[in-house]
Computed example of a mutant assay.
Amino acid sequence: MKVMENRVSRNTKIFSEEKILNECREYFSSETEKTAEIGERFMQYFMKNASPEGVLFKTIKEITTDINISHQTLTKVLKTLESKEIIYRRNGIIGLWKE
């Protein structure tokens, strides 16, 4: 019985969505309004579609199609988020740095 209580629910996220969104808003505040808006849209998409461990298994093409943005703009957003160590990219995945 004790083992069951210590397990994390499969639907429980290990990251705070509100904290991450606030950090992203801060990082994108120095960017253009369009880039900031797309950055926030991407992060909301990420939160909705990522695994509970904070990993998104989607290609750039799938993401651009799903949220209707250009490849170039998404790449800029991802590079900004990587430089601030919010996300990392490895071989077809986008992951969230641990809090």
Rank of each mutant, 00 (worst) to 15 (best):
M1Q: 05
M1C: 08
K2Y: 01
K2W: 00
V3S: 09
M4G: 08
M4Q: 14
M4L: 11
E5K: 13
E5G: 09
E5L: 08
N6K: 12
R7K: 14
S9I: 03
R10A: 10
R10D: 03
K13N: 14
K13Q: 09
I14M: 08
F15E: 05
L21P: 08
N22D: 14
N22G: 06
E23S: 10
C24L: 08
R25C: 00
R25G: 10
E26Q: 13
F28P: 06
S30P: 00
T32P: 04
K34T: 10
T35N: 03
A36K: 14
E37Y: 03
E37M: 09
I38W: 01
I38A: 02
P52K: 04
E53Y: 09
E53T: 14
G54F: 00
V55R: 11
V55I: 15
F57M: 11
K58W: 01
T59E: 02
K61Y: 00
T64Q: 00
I69F: 02
I69D: 00
S70A: 09
H71Y: 11
Q72K: 11
T73W: 03
L81P: 04
L81F: 08
K84V: 07
E85A: 14
Y88G: 07
R89F: 12
I93D: 03
L96G: 01
K98T: 02
K98G: 06
E99W: 00
